[in-house]
């Protein structure tokens, strides 16, 4: 069986800025049509990788393949990828329509044709009536959509999105997430999405690469990352978790491993039984949909449990209350130790 050529393939990619290594010896393949996210804290190298794919940065060593072609040293304008910038980078002196039509303009497409295409692209992002405005007259969300329309009008093979929703407020952001996902399905092109927001990455992506200190810690589907994080970093960065040291797991489960157990997997009860561990509530924080309960276990470690509002155990928990904690061994994920 012939493997499909990956949309993007990075081989041994390294980028150093002076003595600082931003990206170190990175290998990555992104399938065609995939919604791929690069997730990591700031400074983890994800944006640098994106910029090397776009051609804004040249790698110190290694190669970038686009659809099987080595584009490592090609200029941005010779690469069939387009970028949606974090702060949109709209051309302030041009109208929205001119901004969107720009990619076609520099390709020599006639005025009438490119403006028709721009109107169409604008209607894709539901801004058909805004073509005559200047970017400064638009809201953040509208600018975001203009930037999208501008990038997709040239029908790139790959669309790079650099924290595109970072500057939007929460509501708008959730709405845009849905739109982005729909757009990607509609256009059927590869999206590479850079974000530091794990929830966003999990919501949108087919696959996510978790970056830490210039390396990829783990690549996988959102479920894989969440359910089976391989490293303490991934476990902690993707969602929240209770990290347990070997002596804790020894005490709780009878086996000494480095492990993680998600807060929502921890059940609380007042009834004492053999299967429970007793502890004391340190703090209970009500967050609306749930209550986060911090517990000091008599066996040693502190854990956090997430109790959904309306669930069986959603009675109010208060400080210093005695509590029984249900921990299932199947919920314990073993992590790699370095």
């Amino acid at each position: 069986m012939v493997e499909q050529t990956p949309a993007i393939s990075l081989r041994g990619l390294t980028k150093s800025f002076g003595s600082v290594t931003a990206v170190s010896n990175l290998d990555l393949e992104i399938k065609s049509g995939e919604f791929f996210s690069m997730l990591g804290p700031s400074g983890s190298g994800k944006t640098t990788v994106l910029r090397m794919i776009a051609g804004f940065e040249l790698p110190t060593s290694g190669h970038v393949f686009l659809d099987g072609e080595d584009v490592t040293t090609k200029a941005p304008f010779d690469r069939d990828v387009n970028t949606v910038f974090q702060d949109y980078a709209l051309f302030p002196h041009m109208t929205v329509l001119e901004n969107v039509a720009y990619g076609l303009r520099v390709r020599g497409v006639g005025k009438r044709e490119r403006e028709a295409a721009a109107v169409e692209a604008l209607s894709t992002v539901r801004l058909a009536d805004f073509g005559g405005r200047k970017p400064s007259e638009l809201s953040g969300g509208q600018r975001q959509r203009v930037a999208l329309a501008r990038a997709i009008i040239v029908k790139p093979k790959v669309l790079l999105l650099d924290e595109p929703l970072g500057a939007l407020d929460l509501k708008l952001r959730e709405q845009m997430q849905i739109e982005l996902k729909e757009l990607q399905r509609e256009l059927a092109i590869t999206f590479i999405f850079v974000t530091h927001d794990q929830e966003e990455a999990l919501t949108l992506s087919d696959r996510v690469a978790v970056f830490n200190q210039g390396r990829i810690e783990q690549i996988g589907s959102p479920q894989e990352l969440y359910e089976r994080p391989q490293t303490p970093f991934v476990a902690g960065f993707v969602g929240t978790t209770n990290l347990l040291e070997p002596q804790d797991t020894q005490a709780l489960f009878g086996k000494a491993i480095k492990g993680s157990i998600r807060p929502e997997r921890i059940k609380l009860t007042t009834q004492n039984s053999v299967a429970t561990h007793s502890g004391k509530v340190i703090e209970a924080i009500y967050v609306g949909s749930a209550t986060r309960v911090h517990i000091k276990l008599d066996a040693g470690p502190e854990v956090t449990a997430l109790v959904l509002s309306g669930s069986d155990s959603s009675e109010s928990w208060s400080r210093n209350q005695e509590v029984q904690v249900v921990l299932n061994e199947k919920d314990l994920v073993q992590l790699e130790t370095k």
Partner: peptide, 20 residues
């Protein structure tokens, strides 16, 4: 990033200078 955006959208150096 405006210059990068122009280049990204396919504008060669001269077009970027002239149009942006």
């Amino acid at each position: 990033n405006i210059l990068e955006a122009s280049s990204d959208l396919g504008a060669k150096t001269w077009s970027t200078l002239r149009l942006i």
